[in-house]
Amino acid sequence: MIIRPAHIEDLPILLDFEQGIIKAERPMDITLKTDEKINYYDLSDYIKADHTEVVVAEVNGEIVGSGYGQIRERKEFFKQDTMGYIGFMFVKDEFRGQGISQKIIQYLSNWFSTKDITEIQLDVYDQNPSAIRAYEKAGFEKYLVRMRINSGDKS
């Protein structure tokens, strides 16, 4: 297995992975539109951007996983001006449980280190315990809970 930066030629596969993520997350998020195709990311721009590293995992020449690391500005009251953010984590079903996501996270962590980024964050749905376990295995810790209410829902 190799982890490498994504190329623009990988875009069709990456767009399929994005739809796989959305399909998995729709049942966890009632705020997502369900009656139309949506996109979370502008992957073409991300591949070209200096502040984002999109990567793919290949096994025997087949792209089986993806992720991105992005340098993001922070508000002035934080100790650090920038942070790393990891997203777009996807591994094909038949390749899960083989440590691929861990290798993607390690690759992105190393990339952040070359940019002098020491704090890395990500978002994960609370209803996704397998993803939470994978991120905890990589050293991530829970530190904030986002809550919501739909004030129009009176039932």
Rank of each mutant, 00 (worst) to 15 (best):
I2R: 11
I2A: 01
I3V: 15
I3S: 02
I3F: 10
R4A: 07
P5H: 02
P5Y: 09
A6Y: 03
A6C: 06
H7L: 07
L11G: 06
L11P: 06
P12Y: 10
I13W: 00
I13L: 10
L14K: 04
L14H: 01
L15Q: 08
D16T: 11
F17R: 03
E18N: 14
Q19V: 03
Q19G: 01
K23W: 03
K23V: 04
E25F: 10
E25C: 13
E25V: 10
R26V: 11
R26F: 00
P27R: 03
P27D: 06
M28F: 15
M28Q: 15
D29R: 10
T31W: 03
T31R: 09
L32D: 10
Y40V: 09
Y41N: 08
Y41E: 09
D42S: 10
S44G: 01
D45E: 10
Y46P: 00
I47A: 06
I47D: 01
K48D: 05
D50T: 13
D50N: 15
H51S: 14
T52C: 15
E53S: 06
E53W: 01
V54M: 07
E58N: 06
E58V: 09
E58G: 04
N60L: 07
G61V: 05
G61Q: 11
G61K: 09
G61M: 05
E62V: 10
V64P: 12
G65H: 07
G65T: 07
S66C: 13
S66A: 15
Y68C: 08
G69C: 00
Q70F: 02
I71T: 08
R72D: 03
E73W: 10
R74G: 00
K75A: 08
K75G: 03
E76F: 12
K79V: 14
K79L: 14
K79D: 12
G84P: 04
Y85H: 14
I86K: 01
I86T: 00
I86Q: 01
I86F: 05
G87R: 09
G87W: 02
G87T: 01
F90K: 05
F90L: 06
F90C: 08
V91C: 11
D93H: 06
D93I: 00
F95L: 00
R96I: 12
G97M: 00
G97D: 11
G97H: 04
G99K: 03
G99S: 01
G99T: 03
K103N: 13
K103D: 11
K103C: 04
Q106K: 15
Y107F: 15
S109N: 07
S109C: 03
N110S: 11
W111V: 07
S113G: 07
K115M: 13
K115V: 06
I117H: 09
I117N: 09
E119I: 07
I120E: 05
I120D: 02
Q121I: 04
L122K: 09
D123M: 11
D123C: 09
V124F: 01
Y125G: 04
Q127V: 08
P129A: 10
S130R: 12
A134E: 04
E136M: 15
A138H: 07
G139K: 01
L144G: 02
V145D: 15
R146K: 07
M147S: 11
R148D: 04
I149L: 14
G152A: 13
D153L: 13
K154F: 12
K154M: 14
K154S: 13
